[in-house]
């Protein structure tokens, strides 16, 4: 299919590459930064890619069949609606939106237009998380009672530092921990209530740290820690405890560890995309799943409603952090 990329930062580049690997053609690359749009379009010159300034034009461009949205979170809703109105299928980076209300509108717009909306909750495709889920289902923890996840490292920047602006990005809870909020719901079931504490500091550097406790409808307790408080690095940990066992994963114990002073481009890495030493990266698996759905072969692992639910939990977490009280969903 013909793909239009909206937002040509780190994730835009990645999704363009994966879409191409899945046999799609990159025909338009939009970014408010002209140079980023041009750069990505140049990479897919053979596909006939053109650089565009305004993402809205991609959403309306006749030859585009699928738009991929990798823009700052608050802009997702408008792009989704525009794409849907123009009959385009949509791949949207997580989180689906900055508020649950926005997300519901976007999902409704896609539904009304009869287009497919996929949201990049990629952790569902990570091999370690799939393995943990499989082990839990095989009873290796016994009856699970507790799940704990940890994710993050240094604060990402993004164009104009939008990641670091909680009003735009929702901070570490919305942009980082949302992976875990989604995965816990996916692996263990619906959330009953949420309690959360956050730290937002700007001096001497941006420090965003969030500690979330979940009580699930099935009685399980969960803890999700998200950090953009570390001076460097990126780390993921997961633990499941049950009546008969404990399952643990720590990304610090890894098959490959590379310590670079600079990226290949010569700059400091600003958005870290965790890698996996596997044949097919989780991001590629995600694109294969989406592509199958586009081809009418089965349902994807992530539904639009899943993405709304994740935002609803994240929203509850921020509300709890603000009020100092638990929030029941």
């Amino acid at each position: 299919m013909n793909i239009g990329i909206i937002g040509c930062g780190v994730m835009g580049e990645l999704h363009a590459q994966l879409a191409a690997e899945c046999g799609h053609r990159i025909v338009a690359c939009a970014d408010t930064s002209r140079s980023k749009a041009k750069q990505l379009a140049k990479t897919y010159k053979d596909h006939g890619a053109e650089a565009v300034k305004d993402g809205m034009n991609v959403a309306g461009q006749p030859e585009v069949e699928v738009v991929v949205i990798n823009t700052p979170t608050p802009t997702h809703g408008e792009f989704i609606k525009a794409a849907a109105e123009n009959g385009k299928h949509i791949f949207c980076e997580k989180p689906l939106g900055r508020t649950a209300a926005e997300c519901e509108e976007a999902v409704q717009a896609a539904k009304n237009a009869g287009v497919k909306l996929f949201v990049g909750h990629v952790v569902r495709y990570f091999h370690e998380f799939e393995t943990i889920k499989g082990l839990v289902e095989a009873g290796k923890a016994g009856e699970p009672g507790f799940v704990k996840t940890y994710r993050g490292g240094m604060a990402p920047q993004g164009e104009g530092g939008w990641f670091r602006d909680v009003a735009q990005s929702g901070g570490v809870v919305f942009d980082c921990s949302i992976h875990d909020l989604d995965w816990i719901r996916y692996a263990f079931g619906e959330v009953e209530r949420v309690f959360c504490q956050t730290v937002h500091e700007t001096k001497p550097d941006v420090i965003d740290y969030a500690m979330v406790t979940l009580r699930l409808k099935n009685g399980m307790i969960g803890q999700v820690i998200g950090t953009w408080a570390h001076p460097s690095g990126f780390r993921v940990k997961a633990e499941v405890c049950g009546s008969r066992g404990v399952l643990q994963f720590d990304s610090a114990q890894t098959a490959v560890e590379t310590h670079m002073r600079k990226t290949a481009r010569g700059d400091d890495p600003s958005v870290i995309v965790p890698g996996s030493p596997v044949d097919k990266s989780p991001y590629l698996l995600e694109w294969e799943d989406f592509t199958k759905w586009l081809n009418g072969e089965g349902e994807p692992r992530v539904t639009p409603e899943d993405a709304v639910s994740a935002v609803r939990i994240a929203e509850a977490a921020l509300k709890s952090a603000e009020t100092g009280a638990p929030v029941t969903l």
Binding site: G145, I225, C241
Partner: peptide, 26 residues
């Protein structure tokens, strides 16, 4: 056999704590 806590200390320090008997026999 499990307590997951959030606490505040003077000056607004945010604390989370997991108190558990979650370590299985093995």
């Amino acid at each position: 056999d499990l307590g997951v806590m959030h606490m505040e200390m003077e000056g607004g320090i945010a604390i989370s704590h997991i108190a558990s008997w979650s370590r299985c026999d093995s």
